[in-house]
Design a protein around this nucleic acid. Structure first.
Length: 1058
RNA sequence: GCCUUGGUGGCGGAAUUGGUAGACGCGCUGGAUUCAAAAUCCAGUGUCUUCGGACGUGUGGGUUCGAUUCCCACCCAAGGUACCA
């Protein structure tokens, strides 16, 4: 009886579904275990072989934990809001909900095929109104909260209001906007309702702010940074401008420190923690205010100055200019402006101890003061520099440490202590997005400042005791002793820092500060396919829709593009107004600003729906609450979370932020939601390339003026040359390698050129443009299936008339020659045409083979290329495993009984227990690749031992079951069980079966193994040494020398030195 | 530039605390079976070799009786990038 995986896999998938084998209960006496895989975005390309890698790992662990007696929660769902569905809708007009539904169906079929032990009754979809009701609910909770720095947690906004009523905001320690004014209790009580709302918005954890976006007028949308290349849109090359837009933001900066501290409590990969730590970017130092010396004053343009003074309150703090920064915010940060200085520059420095070493200042070219302080003489130079900088990316600016560039503004700042003038420069090594976008440059203590000073001949005062700075800057904090620095002389880094800050505070020009790189998260998207905000506007102020009226469902729209007036797609909806009396969505025409108001037109970003989904799984059908208290109390948090590292600073940071907020509000009892996280490595694809020929002729004529006329004649036909031919040509430059047809063409063109009397010279150049083709048309020997490629019409039959030149230079008509493609390993993605779907492999080898093979490829956390060549290995392993059990399939009752009762031999037991030990250790260390090897070893050994003992084969089936569950269930049943194997107890390892009486010792001479000697394991070192030295081969090796030293490691090795 | 991860046969990879480098699988070679093929089974398979052995885990050093493993310096590849006042 053969192993028929098709029949078996279908049978057990049906069984599991019908028996709800993996349904998790919220009430159980068993210990709980919550195993989670990151849920997928259901794209149109379907699941590819990279997706299941993490799912299989989580599934193996889940199944293992069931065998170990845990109540396991192992859910799956879909992150189903997203851009691709919307873009498809824009192209085809089809509603994203429909395409999403279809894609989910396909994903579900593919997932079902792989035999995962998901509890499908808990499936969630972020685009489902019953789900996003709770995403909207959390948004409202955030809106109704502020961050109290004193209690160090989020609190209900009502507690803030009551403080305002009693004492105003002077003493409130809160995370809030920079420009929050100070007011008294009586001020507050006299504010109008709208003024109060405006103030509160500056404190809420989600708030409206004008933030700059990359606006592309031609596309009518906002673009992400990486959608912009060299200042124009990646798609279409349209210009992009910075535009201010009122958008929702999340005050994640309030949680910066807690997000940092929480990392110590969780078992996440260190690289991931590092990347979050760097993203948050904490640094300690001081903020220092430098007054700009007023060059304008002498021109007695008083009007300009006084208006500048009025606005200077703003200019002081907004050194970062671009967006709200993570500079710790509180009203106290506002430093009062001395009236005689129209402008001030605030810098953040980690080295306030070096303040007397400042010899210039550098502003980021984008710094908003640049235009204001630049003198007329320097204007042209500065503007040219600013323009040049705008073309460089931040990455480029950071990576380039070799070239020094900048420009002098002509303006000077005043040193806070010496009152000396300091020249103000701009330089692209200072980034606008970090700190305040301005640096107090201390060339003797910072290498980049040093290089800048050297380059522009700026003074480099030395403020370090006994340090030579003639060659490079000195940045060693520990060895620092300050000199030439007035009151800081003789102090260490620590002492001087403390003292400098104290002195700065005295003169009101600085204070100690912790700076975070993290910025508040923009939460609005100008898109259709996302969660609508439960928000309407009364008199320009946002109002929340009450919970009982949620979800606020996405309206129907005619088209998914922005409106002609540049509003987001929801601006196209005809029914998108809120009637506050009926509490329903009504026609926009009814808006009267009395009872009917406009609704918010933005939608939420991709990470909104994924920031609490792990908690929703605990109680996914609850319509009264996001989850019940019982459910969250039982499941608590995720025990194992597996997913890709690309989410390190997106999903994985924002979801921690929301969890901490939920914790502050008392909804969850853990402020970190995932105890352990593992990043599965990427499965890379092997892209295939064909080489399109481009032939260019150059004809040249000469006259008195020299070389005057050139003409290009390009070969128009699509000719694709096989890889071997391309390589030959590149080596030899011989055209004949390109095939007769092309060679004849080139010859013909040359002849024509020769006949043209007016041409003095001619040449021909050939290049090969590699173009990706779908990997499904390429076989394992890199040969291209030309007929199928020609028929492919996804991109409009682009190859139907192409000419293919094969390896032998033949033009391919049938099988007269073969075409070989070039290959390259890249990330697997639809756009690279290298996606391999699991379906075909499942069809040919079965799900169990695919599961084993994906694990067998290599360590889970490492990235590895996909290559199906090795799958026959695991497939034949499963056949061998099956064969081991065939005696049980015999209908002859007599024979079956004799098999059942066969006593296991010592070898059988040794093989089994060795495997139990290894597999258990492997699973617990997530080393799934090595356990597959060990199954192979185990089956090979048992086969060689002709093992037919039920007491061996029964536990073996359980060991295999997490990895290859279908075959394990089938074998389990054939062993006579009527219940599923899913909860059969994991076999217990017994060391006694592995005890060896003899050990084959490798005998080394000077570290090299020369022979082996079998000795009893209970022999002590002395006896081993004696036995080895007495051996004839030892004498042979030593050739009469006396050994200097003999190292005996009992049970391991013997090494003789001499 | 910086951060992270990695570099071992023709390929994927193994070696759990410093103790026989290359487990297991693919591929390849030879053989059995077969009319033949597929499938299956058996044997071999790091490189060089004067058949004694020598060399061998990115490179160069170091520690050690012994190093893929620990230390120092460097090279290369992939991923990330905000580095930093």
């Amino acid at each position: 009886m053969n192993y028929n995986f098709r029949e078996i896999e279908a049978k057990w998938q049906k069984y599991w579904a019908e028996h709800e084998t993996f349904k998790a209960s919220n009430h159980s006496d068993k210990p709980k275990f919550y195993a989670l895989s990151m849920f997928p975005y259901p794209s149109g390309a379907g699941l590819h072989v990279g997706h299941p890698l993490g799912y299989i790992a989580t599934d193996i662990y889940s199944r293992y934990k069931r065998h170990k007696g845990f109540n396991v929660l192992h859910p799956m769902g879909y992150d189903s809001f997203g851009l691709p569905a919307e873009q498809y809708a824009i192209q085809t007009g089809q509603h994203p909900a429909i395409t999403t539904e279809n894609n989910i169906k396909r994903y579900r079929e593919q997932l079902d095929q792989l035999g995962f032990s998901f509890d499908w009754s808990r499936e969630v979809r972020t685009s489902n109104p019953a789900y996003y009701k709770w995403t909207q609910w959390i948004f409202i909770q955030l809106f109704n909260s502020w961050y109290n720095k004193t209690s160090d947690k989020a609190e209900n906004i009502e507690t803030l209001v009551s403080i305002f009523e009693k004492e105003g905001n002077a003493n409130v320690q809160a995370a809030c906007d920079d420009d929050t004014p100070t007011f008294s209790a009586s001020d507050w009580n006299h504010f109008s309702a709208k003024e109060k709302q405006e103030i509160l918005l500056k404190y809420r954890l989600t708030y409206l702010a004008d933030t700059e976006v990359n606006w592309c007028p031609a596309l009518g949308t906002v673009l992400a940074n990486d959608e912009i290349v060299n200042g124009v849109s990646e798609r279409g090359g349209h210009p992009v401008i910075r535009k201010k837009m009122t958008q929702w933001s999340m005050r994640i900066t309030a949680y910066a420190q807690r997000l940092l501290d929480g990392l110590d409590k969780i078992d996440w990969p260190q690289p991931l923690k590092d990347s979050q730590t760097n993203w948050i970017g904490r640094s300690e130092g001081a903020s220092v205010t430098f007054n700009v010396l007023d060059a304008e004053r002498s021109r007695s343009d008083e009007g300009v100055i006084s208006s500048a003074v009025e606005k200077s309150q703003k200019d002081v703090i907004s050194g970062d200019g671009v967006t709200s920064s993570a500079v710790e915010k509180s009203q106290k940060d506002v430093i009062s402006t001395p009236l005689n200085h129209p402008y001030q520059i605030e810098v953040f420095t980690t080295r306030p101890d070096t303040i007397f070493g400042v010899s210039f200042m550098t502003l980021a070219p984008e710094h908003e003061l640049v235009a204001k302080i630049t003198t007329p003489e320097q204007k042209a130079e500065v503007e040219a520099y600013v323009e040049a900088t705008a073309k460089r990316s931040e990455r480029d600016r950071m990576a380039d440490v070799k070239t020094v560039s900048g420009a002098f503004t002509g303006a000077y700042a005043e040193h806070p202590f010496t009152k000396e003038p300091i020249p103000i420069w701009i330089g692209d090594y200072v980034l606008a997005s970090y700190g305040t976008g301005a640096v107090m440059a201390v060339p003797c203590g910072d290498q980049r400042d040093y290089d800048f000073a050297k380059h522009y001949n700026i003074d480099i005062p030395n403020i370090f005791e006994g340090v030579d700075i003639s060659e490079e800057a000195f940045a060693d904090k520990a060895a620092t002793i300050i000199a030439n620095s007035d009151f800081l002389n003789g102090l260490s880094y620590k002492e001087a820092t403390k003292k400098a800050i104290a002195e700065l505070e005295k003169i009101g020009q600085g204070k100690g500060k912790v700076n975070y790189r993290l910025r508040d998260a923009v939460f609005s998207r100008q898109r259709y396919w996302g969660e609508p905000f439960p928000v309407y506007y009364v008199d320009g102020m946002p109002q929340m829709i009450a919970l009982e009226h949620l979800p606020l469902e996405l309206p129907k729209v005619e088209k998914y593009l922005p409106t002609e007036t540049g509003e987001p797609p929801l601006g196209n909806a005809t029914h998108w107004a809120w009637n506050t009396e009926q509490c329903t969505v009504v026609n926009n025409q009814l808006i009267d600003y009395k009872t009917v108001f406009p609704l918010e037109l933005n939608t939420m970003p991709g990470w909104a729906g994924s920031s609490q989904y792990f908690n929703r799984y605990m109680d996914p059908r609850n319509n009264e609450a996001i989850f019940s208290k019982e459910a969250i109390d039982y499941w608590q948090d995720v025990d194992l979370y597996i997913g890709g590292s690309e989410h390190a600073t997106g999903h994985l940071l924002y979801s921690r932020f929301w969890q901490k907020f939920m914790f502050d509000m008392g909804y969850v009892s853990k402020d970190e939601y995932a105890k352990k996280l593992i990043n599965q490595g990427m499965i890379t694809g092997t892209s295939a390339f064909v080489y399109r020929v481009r032939v260019t002729f150059l004809s040249v004529r000469f006259n008195e003026a020299g070389r005057i006329s050139e003409q290009d004649n390009s070969f128009e036909e699509v000719v694709l040359v096989s890889k071997g031919r391309v390589e030959e040509h590149e080596r030899t430059k011989d055209f004949s390698f390109l095939g007769k047809r092309l060679a004849a063409y080139i010859e013909g063109e040359f002849n024509e050129l020769r006949q043209d009397q007016e041409i003095d010279d001619y040449e021909c150049s050939i290049d090969f443009n590699p173009i990706r083709v779908k990997v499904k048309y390429v076989n394992a020997s890199d040969e291209l299936d030309i007929d199928s490629l020609k028929k492919d019409d996804e991109f409009g039959n682009e190859y139907s008339n192409a000419i293919f030149i094969g390896e032998n230079g033949e033009e391919i008509y049938s099988s007269n020659d073969i075409y070989k493609v070039g290959r390259e390993v890249e990330k697997m993605s639809k756009s690279k045409l290298n996606v391999v779907n699991p379906d075909a492999i499942c069809e040919e080898y079965g799900a169990d083979s695919l599961r084993l093979y994906e694990m067998f490829l290599g360590p889970l956390e490492q990235s590895k290329p996909w290559n199906t060549a090795g799958i026959t290995g695991v497939s034949s392993f499963l056949k061998k495993l099956w064969k081991l059990y065939t005696p049980f399939f015999d209908t002859d009752a007599e024979r079956s009984r004799s098999v059942t009762e066969a006593e296991p031999t010592a070898d059988n037991l040794k093989t089994l227990h060795k495997t139990i030990k290894k597999v258990q250790e492997d699973i617990e260390h997530f080393s799934f690749n090595t356990s597959v090897s060990n199954f192979m070893i185990c089956v090979n050994e048992l086969t060689a031992q002709k093992c037919t003992s039920k007491s061996i084969l029964e536990p073996l089936a359980i060991l295999v079951s997490p990895y290859a569950p279908h075959i394990a269930e089938e074998l389990w049943e054939r062993l006579g069980h009527t219940e599923s194997i899913a909860e059969a107890p994991f076999p217990t390892f017994e060391a006694k079966y592995l005890v060896e009486s003899r050990k084959e010792y490798p005998i080394q001479f000077n570290g090299k193994v020369r022979f082996k000697l079998e000795l009893p394991t209970d022999m002590d070192s002395k006896a081993i040494e004696a036995a080895v030295l007495a051996h004839e081969k030892t004498q042979e090796q030593l050739q009469g020398r006396a050994p200097k030293k003999v190292i005996v490691v009992p049970g391991k090795i013997v090494n003789i030195v001499g």
